[in-house]
Amino acid sequence: MKNKSKFIKGAADGIPIGLGYLSVSFGFGIMAVGAGLSPYEAFVISLTNLTSAGQAQGVSVIAAGGTLAEMALVQLVINIRYALMALSLSQKLDKRFTPIHRFFAAYGITDEIFAVCSSKKEPITPSYMYGVIAVSAFGWTLGTFLGAIAGELLPPSVSSALGIVLYGMFIAIVVPAAKKQKSILTVSVIAALLGIMCKYLLPFISGGFAVIICAVAASVIGAVLFPRKEEKP
């Protein structure tokens, strides 16, 4: 009974995440179908990956016919932040979090789920985390499927405008952080400038590798210029 109420509490906390995911993954569904995937394939990607940036870049690797090694590296670099979040979250788990639960719950470590779980005062129980994950993943996969289907039905003027939705979300993540910290602003501007250079001066580098090279270079420059003394933001 106690576990059940924890699950419901988690599910309630997951509703805003699920609603947000629904609208953003709608854009991913449209993007995936536009890149030549079927709605079913887009749905399976969302169900098995549960991540926005990695999926978006993964679809462009698929569309460009990239190699599996490129795909693996792209996912590694784009999603490496989850390793940090997983590490941080692993410090505040309830003792009920046995290894089996850790294997299942690891699936649901995303930026937003991490943010909600780590904002809790008390240790996280498996039931609570499963509640958050269930509602969030439901919104993410449902939105993907609806977007993938609607992408074929919507007038081109609407579906092409929706192609920008994920990028809009990325801007909404980077700009407020860059406004507060000069280091993040510098790193972001360097990454964007390197991105432009790769695209127009070194067009033989594929999109996935270009993102890796630019992001790693900009982050190294950031770590050297602005090493962070404090623990967490």
Partner: peptide
């Protein structure tokens, strides 16, 4: 400190490089 800083900046650098151009 350098590895922690590097990991801290990676998400923003990835999103910027993915978004532009």
């Amino acid at each position: 400190v350098y590895i922690k800083s590097f990991l801290y900046y990676v998400p923003y650098a990835v999103l910027s490089a993915m978004t532009i151009p």
